[in-house]
Simulated assay, not measured.
Amino acid sequence: MTPFKKNPDAVSPVVGVMLMLTLVIILAAVISGFAGGIAGSSNSGSLIEITAQTKIINSGNNDTSRFEIDIISVNDPVSTKDLKLKTSWKSYDDAGNLVLHENSSMPGTKNFNYIKSGVSPIGAGPGLPQWDGTYENISTNMSFGNYAIMAGTKMVAYPSTYYLNGEYTDNQYTDCMQAILGEGWNNLSSGDVVNVMLIHVPSGRIIYDEDVNVNLT
Protein backbone atom coordinates (compact mmCIF):
# COMPACT_ATOMS: atom_id res chain seq x y z
CA MET A 1 0.00 0.00 0.00
CA THR A 2 1.18 3.52 -0.85
CA PRO A 3 1.32 5.69 2.27
CA PHE A 4 -0.49 9.05 2.24
CA LYS A 5 1.80 12.01 1.81
CA LYS A 6 1.26 15.35 3.52
CA ASN A 7 0.37 18.18 1.11
CA PRO A 8 2.21 21.33 2.21
CA ASP A 9 -0.18 23.44 0.07
CA ALA A 10 -3.33 22.35 1.96
CA VAL A 11 -5.09 24.75 4.37
CA SER A 12 -4.68 23.75 8.00
CA PRO A 13 -7.83 22.96 10.02
CA VAL A 14 -7.25 26.01 12.24
CA VAL A 15 -7.08 28.39 9.28
CA GLY A 16 -10.19 26.79 7.79
CA VAL A 17 -12.15 27.30 10.99
CA MET A 18 -11.02 30.94 11.18
CA LEU A 19 -12.13 31.54 7.61
CA MET A 20 -15.55 30.06 8.33
CA LEU A 21 -15.95 32.19 11.48
CA THR A 22 -15.04 35.30 9.52
CA LEU A 23 -17.65 34.46 6.89
CA VAL A 24 -20.33 33.90 9.56
CA ILE A 25 -19.53 37.26 11.20
CA ILE A 26 -19.76 39.09 7.87
CA LEU A 27 -23.11 37.47 7.06
CA ALA A 28 -24.45 38.32 10.52
CA ALA A 29 -23.46 41.98 10.04
CA VAL A 30 -25.18 42.12 6.64
CA ILE A 31 -28.38 40.57 8.00
CA SER A 32 -28.34 42.92 11.00
CA GLY A 33 -27.94 45.93 8.73
CA PHE A 34 -30.84 44.78 6.54
CA ALA A 35 -33.08 44.27 9.56
CA GLY A 36 -32.12 47.71 10.84
CA GLY A 37 -33.60 49.22 7.69
CA ILE A 38 -37.10 48.56 9.00
CA ALA A 39 -36.91 51.64 11.25
CA GLY A 40 -35.18 54.98 11.03
CA SER A 41 -32.18 56.08 13.03
CA SER A 42 -32.23 58.85 15.58
CA ASN A 43 -29.43 61.37 16.00
CA SER A 44 -27.79 59.06 18.52
CA GLY A 45 -27.76 56.21 16.00
CA SER A 46 -30.46 54.13 17.72
CA LEU A 47 -33.51 52.92 15.80
CA ILE A 48 -36.53 55.23 15.84
CA GLU A 49 -39.65 53.55 17.11
CA ILE A 50 -42.68 55.80 16.66
CA THR A 51 -46.40 55.40 17.20
CA ALA A 52 -48.67 58.13 15.86
CA GLN A 53 -52.23 58.78 14.75
CA THR A 54 -53.25 61.17 11.97
CA LYS A 55 -56.54 62.98 11.45
CA ILE A 56 -57.58 64.84 8.31
CA ILE A 57 -60.86 66.72 8.66
CA ASN A 58 -62.50 68.73 5.88
CA SER A 59 -65.69 70.21 7.27
CA GLY A 60 -65.75 72.91 4.61
CA ASN A 61 -64.87 75.70 7.05
CA ASN A 62 -61.63 77.03 8.52
CA ASP A 63 -62.50 76.70 12.20
CA THR A 64 -63.31 72.98 12.14
CA SER A 65 -61.05 71.65 9.37
CA ARG A 66 -57.54 70.48 10.23
CA PHE A 67 -54.61 68.14 9.62
CA GLU A 68 -53.09 66.65 12.77
CA ILE A 69 -50.44 64.05 13.54
CA ASP A 70 -50.62 63.08 17.21
CA ILE A 71 -47.34 61.54 18.40
CA ILE A 72 -48.35 58.85 20.90
CA SER A 73 -44.87 57.47 21.63
CA VAL A 74 -41.29 57.68 20.35
CA ASN A 75 -38.28 56.03 21.94
CA ASP A 76 -36.07 59.14 21.63
CA PRO A 77 -36.99 62.75 20.79
CA VAL A 78 -36.41 63.37 17.08
CA SER A 79 -35.65 66.82 15.72
CA THR A 80 -37.89 67.78 12.82
CA LYS A 81 -34.85 69.32 11.13
CA ASP A 82 -34.01 65.70 10.22
CA LEU A 83 -37.49 64.86 8.91
CA LYS A 84 -39.51 65.25 5.72
CA LEU A 85 -43.30 65.04 5.69
CA LYS A 86 -44.80 63.64 2.50
CA THR A 87 -48.48 63.35 1.58
CA SER A 88 -50.11 61.85 -1.50
CA TRP A 89 -53.68 61.27 -2.66
CA LYS A 90 -55.61 60.66 -5.88
CA SER A 91 -58.52 62.37 -7.55
CA TYR A 92 -60.19 62.61 -10.96
CA ASP A 93 -60.16 65.75 -13.11
CA ASP A 94 -63.12 67.08 -15.10
CA ALA A 95 -62.19 64.81 -18.01
CA GLY A 96 -62.24 61.73 -15.80
CA ASN A 97 -58.47 61.32 -15.73
CA LEU A 98 -56.82 60.05 -12.56
CA VAL A 99 -54.54 62.66 -10.99
CA LEU A 100 -51.91 61.94 -8.34
CA HIS A 101 -51.32 64.75 -5.83
CA GLU A 102 -47.98 64.65 -3.99
CA ASN A 103 -46.63 67.23 -1.59
CA SER A 104 -43.60 67.44 0.72
CA SER A 105 -42.74 69.65 3.67
CA MET A 106 -39.02 70.18 4.19
CA PRO A 107 -37.49 71.76 7.32
CA GLY A 108 -36.31 75.30 6.72
CA THR A 109 -38.21 75.62 3.43
CA LYS A 110 -41.09 78.05 4.00
CA ASN A 111 -44.32 76.72 2.58
CA PHE A 112 -47.06 79.07 3.85
CA ASN A 113 -47.39 82.87 3.73
CA TYR A 114 -50.76 83.68 5.26
CA ILE A 115 -50.34 86.51 7.84
CA LYS A 116 -46.98 84.99 8.77
CA SER A 117 -44.59 82.86 6.77
CA GLY A 118 -43.13 79.63 8.05
CA VAL A 119 -43.00 75.88 7.62
CA SER A 120 -46.07 73.72 8.17
CA PRO A 121 -46.96 71.51 10.04
CA ILE A 122 -46.94 73.65 13.15
CA GLY A 123 -45.64 72.06 16.34
CA ALA A 124 -47.65 72.07 19.56
CA GLY A 125 -47.42 70.20 22.84
CA PRO A 126 -44.53 69.57 25.26
CA GLY A 127 -42.22 72.58 25.34
CA LEU A 128 -44.37 74.41 22.79
CA PRO A 129 -47.56 76.48 22.98
CA GLN A 130 -50.87 74.91 22.08
CA TRP A 131 -52.18 76.18 18.75
CA ASP A 132 -55.84 76.96 18.04
CA GLY A 133 -55.37 77.85 14.38
CA THR A 134 -54.79 81.57 14.96
CA TYR A 135 -51.93 82.44 12.62
CA GLU A 136 -50.89 85.51 14.61
CA ASN A 137 -49.91 83.17 17.45
CA ILE A 138 -47.41 81.11 15.44
CA SER A 139 -43.89 81.63 16.78
CA THR A 140 -40.64 80.72 15.03
CA ASN A 141 -39.99 77.71 17.27
CA MET A 142 -43.32 76.20 16.18
CA SER A 143 -42.27 75.90 12.51
CA PHE A 144 -41.45 72.44 11.15
CA GLY A 145 -37.69 72.04 11.48
CA ASN A 146 -37.43 74.05 14.71
CA TYR A 147 -39.03 71.61 17.15
CA ALA A 148 -38.55 68.01 18.22
CA ILE A 149 -41.24 65.34 18.26
CA MET A 150 -41.83 63.38 21.43
CA ALA A 151 -44.77 61.74 23.17
CA GLY A 152 -47.56 64.32 23.25
CA THR A 153 -46.32 66.41 20.32
CA LYS A 154 -48.93 67.43 17.78
CA MET A 155 -48.04 68.39 14.21
CA VAL A 156 -50.93 70.56 13.12
CA ALA A 157 -52.28 72.57 10.21
CA TYR A 158 -55.42 74.69 9.93
CA PRO A 159 -56.71 76.49 6.84
CA SER A 160 -56.90 80.30 6.68
CA THR A 161 -60.02 82.30 7.52
CA TYR A 162 -60.62 82.59 3.76
CA TYR A 163 -61.72 78.95 3.66
CA LEU A 164 -65.52 78.86 3.81
CA ASN A 165 -68.14 76.43 2.48
CA GLY A 166 -65.50 74.25 0.87
CA GLU A 167 -63.94 77.06 -1.17
CA TYR A 168 -61.28 79.74 -0.79
CA THR A 169 -62.62 83.30 -1.11
CA ASP A 170 -59.08 84.67 -1.57
CA ASN A 171 -56.38 82.72 -3.41
CA GLN A 172 -53.42 85.08 -3.04
CA TYR A 173 -52.10 83.23 0.02
CA THR A 174 -50.91 79.70 0.79
CA ASP A 175 -52.08 78.49 4.20
CA CYS A 176 -50.85 75.62 6.36
CA MET A 177 -53.33 73.08 4.96
CA GLN A 178 -52.43 73.91 1.36
CA ALA A 179 -48.75 73.66 2.29
CA ILE A 180 -49.17 70.06 3.45
CA LEU A 181 -51.89 68.64 1.19
CA GLY A 182 -51.67 70.86 -1.90
CA GLU A 183 -53.90 73.59 -3.28
CA GLY A 184 -56.72 71.21 -4.22
CA TRP A 185 -57.05 69.66 -0.77
CA ASN A 186 -60.47 71.30 -0.31
CA ASN A 187 -61.85 68.79 -2.85
CA LEU A 188 -61.13 65.93 -0.46
CA SER A 189 -64.32 64.43 0.91
CA SER A 190 -65.35 61.78 3.40
CA GLY A 191 -63.91 58.38 2.50
CA ASP A 192 -61.02 59.73 0.44
CA VAL A 193 -57.63 58.36 1.47
CA VAL A 194 -54.41 60.32 1.97
CA ASN A 195 -51.07 58.59 2.46
CA VAL A 196 -48.95 60.30 5.12
CA MET A 197 -45.23 59.58 5.58
CA LEU A 198 -42.51 60.85 7.89
CA ILE A 199 -39.07 60.23 6.42
CA HIS A 200 -35.83 60.40 8.40
CA VAL A 201 -33.68 62.30 5.92
CA PRO A 202 -30.15 61.39 7.20
CA SER A 203 -30.89 57.66 6.92
CA GLY A 204 -33.48 57.85 4.14
CA ARG A 205 -35.77 55.58 6.17
CA ILE A 206 -39.54 55.86 6.49
CA ILE A 207 -40.36 56.03 10.19
CA TYR A 208 -44.12 56.55 9.82
CA ASP A 209 -46.44 55.48 7.01
CA GLU A 210 -50.24 55.54 7.27
CA ASP A 211 -53.22 55.67 4.91
CA VAL A 212 -55.62 58.16 6.46
CA ASN A 213 -59.34 58.38 5.76
CA VAL A 214 -60.66 61.91 5.38
CA ASN A 215 -63.59 62.80 7.66
CA LEU A 216 -66.10 65.63 7.74
CA THR A 217 -65.97 66.09 11.52
Rank of each mutant, 00 (worst) to 15 (best):
M1D: 09
N7K: 11
P8G: 01
P8D: 10
A10H: 04
A10R: 07
V11W: 05
G16H: 04
V17R: 11
V17D: 06
M20F: 05
M20A: 13
T22D: 00
L27R: 09
A29I: 06
G37L: 13
G40M: 07
S41A: 10
S41P: 00
S42M: 05
L47T: 07
E49L: 14
I50E: 02
Q53T: 14
T54H: 09
I57Q: 07
N58D: 11
S59Y: 04
G60W: 04
N61D: 15
N61F: 13
N62P: 00
T64G: 03
T64D: 14
D70Y: 12
D70S: 15
I71K: 01
N75V: 13
N75I: 12
D76C: 01
V78K: 05
V78Q: 15
K81L: 08
K81A: 15
L83M: 08
L85W: 00
S91Y: 10
S91K: 11
D93T: 08
D93A: 07
D94Q: 07
N97A: 15
L98H: 00
L100T: 15
L100A: 07
E102R: 09
E102V: 15
K110V: 12
N111K: 12
F112I: 10
N113I: 13
Y114D: 06
S117P: 05
G118P: 12
G118D: 12
S120M: 11
G123I: 10
A124Q: 15
G127H: 06
L128A: 12
G133E: 11
T134P: 00
Y135W: 12
E136K: 14
N141C: 03
M142F: 07
M142C: 08
S143W: 13
G145S: 07
A151F: 11
G152V: 13
K154F: 01
V156G: 01
Y158G: 02
P159V: 13
P159F: 08
S160H: 08
Y162E: 07
Y163R: 04
Y163N: 01
L164M: 10
G166K: 05
G166D: 10
T169W: 00
D170S: 08
Q172G: 03
C176Q: 14
C176E: 13
M177Y: 02
M177V: 09
M177K: 03
Q178F: 02
A179F: 06
A179K: 02
E183R: 05
E183D: 06
G184H: 03
N187Y: 03
N187F: 07
N187D: 08
S189K: 14
S189T: 15
G191I: 06
D192I: 01
V194L: 10
V194G: 05
V194T: 07
N195Q: 15
L198C: 08
I199Y: 04
V201N: 03
S203G: 08
G204S: 09
G204R: 06
R205T: 03
R205Y: 01
Y208N: 02
D211F: 02
N215I: 12
N215P: 00
T217C: 10
T217R: 09
